[in-house]
Structure formats: C-alpha cells, structure tokens
Design a protein around this nucleic acid. Sequence first.
DNA 1: TCAAAAGTGTTTTCTCTACACCCATGT
DNA 2: ACATGGGTGTAGAGAAAACACTTTTGA
Lengths: 237, 237
Amino acid sequence: MERQPFVSAANVSERLAQPPALAISTVIFALRPSATSGRPTLWLPLVRRIREPFKGLWALPGGPLAQADSLQDAAARNLADTTGLAPSYLEQLYAFGGLHRSPAQRVVSIVYWAMVQPTEADMALESENVKWFRADGLETLAFDHNQIVDYALWRLRNKMAYGSIAYHLLGEKFTLAQVREVYEAVLDRTVDPANFRRQLKQTAHIEATDEYLQGGKHRPPRLYRYTGTTAEDSPVP
Amino acid sequence: MERQPFVSAANVSERLAQPPALAISTVIFALRPSATSGRPTLWLPLVRRIREPFKGLWALPGGPLAQADSLQDAAARNLADTTGLAPSYLEQLYAFGGLHRSPAQRVVSIVYWAMVQPTEADMALESENVKWFRADGLETLAFDHNQIVDYALWRLRNKMAYGSIAYHLLGEKFTLAQVREVYEAVLDRTVDPANFRRQLKQTAHIEATDEYLQGGKHRPPRLYRYTGTTAEDSPVP
DNA sequence: TCAAAAGTGTTTTCTCTACACCCATGT
DNA sequence: ACATGGGTGTAGAGAAAACACTTTTGA
C-alpha cells in the first residue's frame, strides 16, 4: 500500500517540489495445499486497494515507514497489522525507486520478503480485502507489484538452491519428505529422495528428534528439528 | 555524505516530526597496485566530511536523491560528481535505515556498489577531501560506513565465487593471469593457474583475441575480451 | 642457456546422480 | 500378504584439485 500524497492529481511542479515518499512493503510466502492436487504450493497474501490509484486492484501489504521503527521492524509491524502474521523469516528484498511507480507522487518502496509457517498462515485473517493467492499465475497487481513478486520468487529459488531457507516455511518439527516437498514446490522439479536426504544431513543444520510422525498410511517417518541460526549469511542486516 | 537537516542539534520532538531523509551512497571498488608488494589490491575512494556530524572523518561518497533520477541514476550521478568516475558495474547493495545512523535526523541510505576499471580509476580526481584507501584495514569512518563497506566486501567475495564479476575491475582486454590476480586479491588465497584457466574457458563469457601482451619479461600472454552481458543475474534491477 | 611465466596433459580425488535394495507400517 | 513411502548402499559419470610437463620469451 503506497502512501498517497496530499494532492489528488498529478502535477509536475508539485511533484518535483515534494521529496520522494518512503514506503515499506512485504512479500509474504507461505505453503498451502494446492486446490487441485493437494500438494503444497506457494501462496502469498494480498490486500485490496480501497482508494486511488489502482483502486480495486490487489497489492502487496505495506505502508509508510513509522518513525520509531527500523526498516526491519516496520516491515514486521505492518505485516502484523494487515495480515496478523508473525514471520519466521524476514529479510530485505530490494529498494524500488523508479520515477513512475506511482502516478501522483514519487514513491520509493523498500520491500521485504517473509516466510511464515503453515500454522501461522492458517491463522491469518482473511476478509473482503485480504486474500491469499497462488504465487504463480498472479493476476495484474497495483503499481509494479507483479515485478516485485517475480523478483522475490527469483530470489527465493536462488536461496533455496543452496541454503537452509526451506525450514522457515515448515513448522518446528518436520519430516525430510516435507522438506523435499518444499524444494519440489518452489523449484518446480522432482528431487531424488535418497540423494536429497544425504545432502541435507551433510550441510544443513538439522537434528533428528526421537519422535516419528504417526497417522500416515505407511512407515512413520522420523521428525527433525532445525538448529541453524536465522541469519546464516550476511554480516550486516 | 548524509544529508543534513535544517536543525543543527538533535531534538526529540523535531526528530519525530520530520520524515526520514533519503540518501544515496556508493561503495566504489577499483584495483590498484599495493604500496608494498605492487600486486593489485582492492581500493575505494572516500570523501572527507566538511561539516558536522562526523566533521573531518572519511565517508562514502553520496548525497540526497535528486528528484529526476531513478535510484540507479542517482548513484551514478553523485559518483560522477564527487569522484569523476563512470562505473563499469553498478548494483544496489542494501538499504540501511537504522534509527540512529545519523545523530540529528533519521536518514535512510540506499547504498549502491560499483566497480571501475583501472584506466578510469587513475583518472579519478584526488584532492584534499577525496582520497583512495585500501579496502582492508580501513580506519574508523563516519556514520555506519565501516559496516557498509564490510557488507559490500562480503557481497563482492560472494559474487566472485561463481560469477563473472572480476572483469568489471579490468580493462577491455586482459590476460587470464590478470583475472586470476583479481580473484586472488579479492578472495585472498592463491589459485592454481592451470585449473583456473580451464574453469574460465568453460563457464565465463570471454573470447580470445589474436593479440598478445608484449613488454613482459617472459612469454607474452594472449589477450582476451569479455563478451558477457552486464546483468547476468536478476530479472528486475 | 637459463629463469620464469604461458599454456597443455594426466592422474587422483571428490561429489553428484541414478537406481537397486531392505525396512516398517496400514490396509 | 502386499502396496507404499521411509531409509540405506553402491556403482558409474563428471567435475575439481594437484602436479608434471612442454612452450616461449627476455635477459
């Protein structure tokens, strides 16, 4: 949700006189069962614009930067405000500052991307103006938000390739097959279960619990727990 | 250079009333011969603060975001203004928005990182208030700029590991040994020349010219040219 | 002719992949 | 018992590392 200025129509001189507005937006990913196949797929919540510009279109949750919040806090806050979600992973995605992203005033959006666990995601409040969408094949969104989502997806797939990101889409305890399903959903290809298991046990920071997931149709799989830190990469953020 | 507000002293209520200022800064890397060994090492230009806060300390080149520029253009522009440089590579690094980065007003800095070729770097204007420093072992800089440089270095090394970034630090034509020297300088370890050569010819986008670098002490090495695109990674920026 | 870097070839080692196989459970 | 996913073992392909070796120049 880009902040709207005090003018209602675009005006070149006014536009140039105003400083660029600063907004925070968030791309929130969660795993939900596909409506058709039932297999887990990527979803994200969007909010409907209730005013111009782009009134009626769907957009990423967001808002202006509150004075008392760091960028990270601001992202977490209006994520909670609009969707009621608390992310298990939250990282800066990119700062979008093109001149014509918003028709009236110039807006610079600092965009974060988040991942929430399924239990959280189910509790997310849905309403007339807040709804979940499948991440692939989105309709046209407000502003440049389609591009932003595409970029977030690209980065998610990139991190997935050699990182321990998948765990943040799962609950506290999970089976290795569930991790594999996340990879397959996000990367959109099948993965050999045997080799995948080995890769995980070598590199990723997980530990076996002594619990097993009961209630399945077949041999109960062992449950694992993620032991890695949330920020296993960069030194600054 | 963070933009200074109209107040001279920090004042809580004023601080909260003002919107956060938006600034652009740039970390510029170039290859220069080490003063001691003569081997190429990483350097970056800094500008001296001529006003409070942090008056007298060195800082990253930067300034406020001009209305008519995209973020990328703004970075390129004040890079040219302060150092006279035209980058061969320019990419967004991160948006830094901590609450207390600047003492008086809250400043959100969108930081870019750039690489310039040695011929360019030699033409860079140095003065009392603009000087080149070795990227490792920097003194204390203004604001949080030490952290920013560290993060830029981390990202540079990361990209170097499996990318075609090194070429942007070199001229149009280069020997394979020069590319290897860049890798060794940035990653700070030796690399087997034979294996390195093979890796490059497989993956990286370079083509052999029919020229050789004359004037060395030994067998003249063949010159190569970079043929890859500048943006071989993300879809958005 | 010798030193040193350019460039090539070869062996060894490691990692990734494919796939055969056993295990444990619900039906 | 048997079908099915959980879990282990292993042989082959391909990439990476280590290093011996030839080539070409300046001194």
